[in-house]
Computed example of a mutant assay.
Amino acid sequence: MSQFTWFSARGPALLASQLDRRARLASPAPLCDSPLQQQRLVVLDLETSGLDLRRDQVLSIGAVVIEGGAIDLGRQFECTLQCPDQRLGTSVLIHGLAPSAIAAGSERVEALLDFMEFLGNSPLLAFHAGFDQRMLARALKQSLGHRLRHPFFDVAELAPMLCPQANIPRGDLDDWARYFGLQVQQRHHASADALVTAELALILFSRARRQRLDSLQALQQRLNGWRRRQRVQAF
């Protein structure tokens, strides 16, 4: 058997071992009505070479696990990805990932497979999740020929929906961290940002339970209605 299997124009060339790992990746679990404290969730943060969804690349992935209503500090994911063909923009001044660190990072296919195995079938949480979702989806498609189907919940939406009294309609992670008195150790570092996002998510889940929203299914239904109201108010 050839070391590589080619997909011609349909996808990247992968080692047979990588194809096997890709084939065994877990399918996402459907959203259910189980209590939030019984859910396993993965909180994700990406650092990227810039903000262009079509051209920029994922440079690092940080993730932590929420399970049993708590952050499992024993299960964290952190990885810097090699990005040999990407010119680094001004974002390097924000995330601090030097070209030498990126050159010494993990090979992209292996890093993305490692993350997807860490993720399993769990839903994802992120702050401004739309950006992370699209960047991760493009990276998986380009490097693995894999389609991302896991549901994402945006903590930047959950926070103003569940805490309207805060009057922070379009706040960033720093705004909400200050509001709840959370300590941010190192901003714009994927693992540190994922950890503070997870801490914020646990606070929001507590608020959700007080509002009788004690499942991902219930949160999704409330979010759908909240988004419709936001669109109406925007006109």
Rank of each mutant, 00 (worst) to 15 (best):
M1E: 13
S2P: 15
Q3S: 12
F7W: 10
A9G: 04
G11D: 02
A13T: 11
L15N: 00
S17Y: 11
Q18W: 01
R21H: 04
R22D: 00
L25Y: 11
L25C: 11
A29N: 03
A29V: 01
P30A: 09
L31I: 12
L36A: 02
L36Y: 01
Q37L: 06
R40H: 07
L41P: 00
V43T: 15
L44D: 00
D45G: 09
T48I: 05
G50H: 09
L53P: 06
R54N: 12
R55T: 09
D56H: 13
L59Y: 12
I61Q: 05
A63T: 03
E67R: 14
G68C: 10
A70N: 08
A70S: 13
I71Y: 04
D72Y: 07
Q76P: 01
Q76G: 10
F77D: 00
T80H: 07
Q86V: 10
L88W: 12
T90K: 09
V92E: 07
L93D: 09
A98C: 07
P99V: 04
P99L: 02
I102P: 02
I102K: 07
A103K: 05
A104L: 09
G105W: 04
S106A: 15
R108N: 06
V109S: 14
F115A: 05
M116S: 04
G120Q: 05
S122C: 09
L124V: 13
L124D: 01
L124E: 02
A129K: 10
Q133G: 06
A139V: 11
A139R: 05
S143P: 10
F152I: 01
F153W: 03
D154A: 13
E157A: 13
A159G: 11
P160L: 07
L162P: 03
C163Q: 09
A166I: 11
N167D: 14
P169Q: 12
L173Y: 10
D174L: 14
A177V: 01
Y179L: 13
Y179A: 11
F180N: 02
F180R: 01
L182S: 09
V184K: 14
Q185C: 00
Q186C: 07
A190S: 13
S191V: 10
A194C: 01
L195N: 00
L195Q: 06
V196E: 00
T197V: 11
T197C: 15
S206G: 12
R207G: 05
A208C: 09
A208G: 08
A208H: 01
D214Y: 04
Q217W: 13
Q217G: 15
Q220W: 03
Q221I: 08
Q221V: 05
Q221M: 06
R222G: 04
N224T: 15
N224F: 14
R229L: 15
R231Y: 09
R231P: 02
V232L: 15
